[in-house]
Structure formats: structure tokens, C-alpha cells
Design a protein around this nucleic acid. Sequence first.
RNA 1: GCGCCCAUCGUCUAGCGGUCCAGGACAUCGCCCUUUCACGGCGGAAACACGGGUUCGAUUCCCGUUGGGCGCGCCA
Length: 450
Amino acid sequence: MSSLIVRFAPSPTGHVHIGNARTALLNYLFAKKHRGLFILRFDDTDAERSKEAFVQAIEADLNWLGVKPDAVLRQSQRLALHSAAAHRLQEAGRLYPCYETPEELERKRKRLQARGLPPVYDRAALALTASERARLEASGRKPHWRFKLDHRIVRWNDLVRGECHINCASLSDPVLVREDGTYLYTLPSVADDIDQKVSHIIRGEDHVTNTAVQIELFEALGAGQRLPAFGHHNLLFSATGEGLSKRSGALSIGSLREEGIEPLAVAAAAVLTGSSATVHPVVSLCELKANFDLGEISRTQARFDPAELATLSARTLHGLSFEAVRERLAAHDITGRKAEPFWLAVRGNLSTFLDAVGWWRVVEAAIEPRIEEAEFLAQARDKLPEEPWDEGIWARWTKALKEATGRKGRALFHPLRLALTGREDGPELAALLPLIGRARAAARLSGHAA
RNA sequence: GCGCCCAUCGUCUAGCGGUCCAGGACAUCGCCCUUUCACGGCGGAAACACGGGUUCGAUUCCCGUUGGGCGCGCCA
């Protein structure tokens, strides 16, 4: 029994977009590949910006992608644990009160930058005497609390980036507790990771610097012996080179779904882009799982092209078995004996799944035929063999027509396609005709809607 | 500004000193198959950012330049 546990920890302040989805998928697939657990944990410590509607939307989007969490948690409901962690840090002398206002801090940063220095907190509050603190508090100032970093070089072997190191002396002591006593992301995140026995933290490379701070926190909280492994994947960029952030709504999972993009195509593109694996259509998340490897992810930022997504989606559709889409077809009342041969006949011509509904109408409902050459079509109708029909019916019928009329090629086939389907292009008629059936075919060849 | 990371066809990438006049995939172009579209098959065009080193020999190692990314919040 493996004890591998991963988590995807979005803040419910926006929708899932392709970049987020990638992190979620990477975690999920990694967990499933190693028979581990996948936790969905909402980092909702920012009460101001966190919205319940986003919680619902994120779960729905993940579900659509096929990412099924083994557990769903909310940080906001685990306050006691976070407070306990804060107290432990305080007792260990790693948490100290600071009284600067945001404006003062901003000024300090500006000053340092102007001198060509990194904008790192100067630890002025650490030098405050007890009476100075008392005076500040008496004047109505409330403290926020910082974690006192150990100024050393923190190293870890990253699952995707290899050996990494960060010099904590170049970092500001992070604020863990706000002036109003609520916690910022850093502390709850680590406290929860410890509590939930998270063994692997897979996230975007925008978190590499955080890792040093978090490793120190893990250690300060006594979890130094059970440090999780870290893996930081590269970030995706739009075709025009902008970062794929919460702001780029065009690449949100919801909008992709509305455009009719296949979830498996989104997943394949999200997971495979930016790695040395070639982007290719997959039949299931299981196939994708077997196919990806954190070590194959590149360290460079990768461009994500939505245009490629559309063709990948079509190619994905072309390879889906009837079983894979049975329920989705049923949702559009595409059921019964004809459903499977129908799917097999049309799937290769679909751009989006919804295109199938149009073809189902061609075989199952009344359509207006397009009459190109009425006389020839009447002749064709008269030569229609009696049922029962099998797959060979098209070949036998058109062969007979060819002999009777001398027509061949486009002159023979084009009028038939137009009358039978009402369209210029589409799947092989050999597969479609048996599904259309004799009565319907005869009527259409006569120019009647049927 | 400071720190860290990165730099190969249009795009995603393989390459870990000679096997590379650089390989694959997607896109693109041409041909074939086909009544049409799609699929499929075959073939073409297309890249080592720049400058110094090291070396008998650099895409591959080192330094610099340029370019890009990330971080530097009482956001997550």
C-alpha cells in the first residue's frame, strides 16, 4: 500500500483555466499512476476574494476533465490546526510581531530598490524593545507576525527541475498572520500539508522561491523528517506570449467546454504541451497517465496554441469508441440498435461532438433533400433494392445504376449524396445508407422531405 | 533594480564533444487514395540567439551579451 498523497490547492478566486487545469491534471495523474490519493483543497484563507460560486465552478470544471478528488477540503474550516501551528512557532521563537503599516513597508521597499538593493524586509521589528512595543500597542497599533527565517541555503531535489537551491538570506521574513489575526496562505498551506500527510507537492514554477520558506516552515513545525518531495512544472503562455493567468478568460475550461472542445483533448494538450512527449490524441485519462512523466517536463516556458486544440479535439473524437460516448449520445436521444453503427460511421467526420446530432437527423429524422437531377434520381429510386439491407447495399445499388445510366464518378455520386443527405460532404454513404433505410431514401430521392 | 531559471524548425521538443550538412510531433506545401469533406499513405520546405573562450573537434562545456520567464505582497 502506497502512502503517496498529492493535493491541488486552488484559491476560489477565479475559474479554472488551462494553466490551472494542467497543475490539477499533473497532480491527479501522478497520484493515480502511483496508486496514491488526490486531495482537492480550497485555499480560501482570503475571505475577501474567495467566493462560493468559484468553489462550485472549480469542482464542476475538474469533474468535466475527469479529475475526481478522493477528498475535498477547505482551509477556512481548519482554523484550529493553523492556530496550533502558529503557537508552536511562537514558542519556538520563530514568530515575531511587526508594527509597520503597509505604506511604511512600501516606502522601505522603494528605498532599497532605488539603491540597487533587493527589497527585503530589514527585520526592524526584531530590534524593538518591550517598552517600544508596548508604546506602539498603546497608540492603537496592532501587530502582524512574521516567520523568522534561518538565513541559510535551502536545497531540494526537484521532481522536474533537478537540484535546486535558494539562499534564504535574500528573502524577506514572510508575514504569516495578518493584523486582524487571520492567516496568510503560507502557514495554513504547510500546516495542512503536514496534517494531511501530503507526500508530493506538484505545482507551477512560480512557487520555487516559496519552497525554501516552506521547507523551513516544515522543519520549524517538526516535520523536517517527513518533508514532501517538490516538483515545479513550467508555466504555459498564450500564443501571443502573455502568461496564462486567471485573467485570460478565453482559455478557461468553461469556455473551452462551450466551444465544444473534448475534455480529453484539453487534458492531453494541458499535460503534454511543454514536455518532450508529443501532443497526441488519447482515448482515456488512463492512457494519458501511462504516457506522462514529470521528468519529461521542460524547464522553459511553453506557448499554448488554442488553434491546435481544435484539431486535437477533432482527432480525439475520431478515435473514441462507441462505449466511450454511449452516454453522451444517449443524452441527445441517440440510442437503440442504430446508435453504434451510426457512431462508427460518422465519428471520422466530426469536428465537435455536437456535429453528430446533425448527422443523426440525417439518418433518423426528416430532412429536406437537395435535388440536382430529378430524372436520374427517380431512376435511382426505382432501382433501390428491397430490404433487408446490409453494408453491401450501397455498392450493389450504385453498380446497378452505373450500368443502367452510364454515369460514373462525380456525376453518379454527387446527386445521390445531395438528395440522400442534403449536404455536399460527409461520411461514406456506404455506411450511411443502411442507416437511412429504404423508405426514407426513396422519399428523398423523389424530392420529398423525409 | 536584486535573486533564481531558461534559450534548437512557425509551435512543442530530441540532442547530454565527433554518430547532426541536427531527429520527431503539430501546423504548412506537394503527390497518392477518394463522388465530396475528413481519415490514411508518401514526399518537401523549415531551427542550433550573438560574441568570446576550452578542445584536434562544439548544438553539446565555460564566460559575457542579448532576449524571455519566475520571484521579490498584511495575494494565493
